[in-house]
Nucleic acid binder design. Structure first.
Lengths: 190, 190
DNA sequence: GTCTATAGGGGGATAGAC
DNA sequence: GTCTATCCCCCTATAGAC
C-alpha cells in the first residue's frame, strides 16, 4: 500500500491534472500551493520555473501512459488491442472535464519552449507508432479497416482520438471516443 | 477595395488571430491594444468583458467559415468536396502557427462560460453535419470509405481534422491534414 | 469614442531566515 | 526543505475628463 507521496510527487500530479483541466496558461503556482499545502516558494524549490514544471509533467505523464500501453497483451487480436486503447484513452479523461495532457499542451505549444515541444512530439510519435503496429496487424487479420499505409492511417487515428477527447468534454459525453474505434473496425456495413 | 475596417472589426480580427495562436488565457487586452493602436479601455468600450470578446469572436469566426462552406459547389462529387474542405481547413491554419479557433476554445472550455461553450458546440455540429452529408454522398458514389453510419463517421472525421491541426502545428508540417483526407478516400490499396 | 488614471488582484520568481 | 517577505510586472475592469 502506497499512502506516502513526496511533496514533489504531489506537486507533479496536481500540475498534470490542472493542466489537463485548464491548460498551461490556466493554472498557477498559487493553485498548486493550495492543493498541496505548501507555499509557492517551496514549489519553486522543486521546479524553478513553470516551464521546468511543464516539461517534467509531460515526462511523468508519458511514462505512465507508456507503461499502460506496454501492458497490453501482445498476443491479442488487433481489434481487441484497439478496444484497450480506447478504454485507456477514456480513463485518462477522468470525470469528463479533462483532456489528454499532451493534446492540451499541443494546443498551448505557442506559449512553450522547444524542450516541451520536443517532449510532446515524442508522446505523439510513440502513440502513433503503437497504433501503426495495431493497424498493420488488423489489416492482416482483416478486422480493421485501413486506407493507405498503416503509418499514415495511424497518425489520422491518433488525431481522431485527440479531437474526440476535445469533443467528449465539450459535449459532456464519452460516446465520441467509442465512435472513433467504430470507424476503424471492419463492419458488415449498415 | 475595402481598406477601412472599423476599430471594432480590427479588435475582433486580432482577437481571433491571437486566440488561434495562444488560446483564451494566452493573450491580453494589452496585446490587442498594441496591435490595434487604441488603449485597453477603448477595447472594453466595445467588449465589456473578455468573455464577451471570446463569444463574439466565435460568432464572427463561425460566420466566416460557414460562408466558405456554403460556397462549395453542391454539384461536385463527394471526394472533390472533401478535398475543398481539407484546403479550407488548411488555409485557416495560416502560416502554421495557428489552429482552428473553435478547436482551441474547446481546449480552453474549462475557463469559459456556457455561452461560449454553446457557440463552440454549434460550430462543431455544423461542421459535422456538413461532413455527414458529404460522406453519405461518397458512399453512394463509392468514392469515400465510410464505416458505420455517416453521422458517426463524420464526427470522427471532424475530430481527425481538429487533431491533425494540432499535430500539423506541433510538427510544423501541413502534410498531416492531407493524410486525413487520404484516410477517407477509397483507394486501390497500397 | 477615446483617453488618463487607477483600482484591486494575480502572475512568476527570488532573497534570506529558520 | 519550508517559510516570510517582497519585487516587479501583468491582468481585467472601471471612473470620469475630453
Amino acid at each position: 500500500m502506497e499512502t506516502t507521496a513526496t511533496v514533489r510527487e504531489q506537486i507533479l500530479d496536481h500540475a498534470i491534472t490542472l493542466m489537463m483541466l485548464h491548460g498551461y496558461n490556466g493554472f498557477s503556482y498559487r493553485d498548486l500551493s493550495e492543493l498541496v499545502g505548501v507555499k509557492t516558494s517551496s514549489i519553486h524549490y522543486y521546479f524553478p520555473s513553470k516551464e521546468d514544471l511543464a516539461l517534467e509533467a509531460v515526462n511523468e505523464y508519458s511514462k505512465q501512459i507508456f507503461a499502460l500501453l506496454g501492458s497490453v497483451d501482445a498476443s491479442l487480436p488487433a481489434d481487441a488491442k484497439l478496444a484497450k486503447y480506447t478504454k485507456l484513452f477514456g480513463r485518462v479523461l477522468g470525470d469528463g472535464d479533462q483532456i489528454c495532457l499532451c493534446g492540451m499542451l499541443a494546443a498551448d505549444i505557442g506559449s512553450l519552449p522547444d524542450t516541451v515541444r520536443a517532449a510532446v512530439q515524442a508522446f505523439f510519435k510513440a502513440n502513433e507508432s503503437w497504433l501503426a503496429k495495431v493497424l498493420a496487424q488488423g489489416v492482416k487479420e482483416r478486422t480493421l479497416a485501413v486506407n493507405g499505409r498503416p503509418e499514415n492511417a495511424a497518425r489520422t487515428l491518433f488525431a481522431a482520438y485527440q479531437g474526440s477527447a476535445l469533443a467528449s468534454r465539450l459535449f459532456q459525453t464519452k460516446a465520441r471516443l467509442d465512435e472513433v474505434e467504430t470507424s476503424w473496425k471492419v463492419s458488415k456495413q449498415v
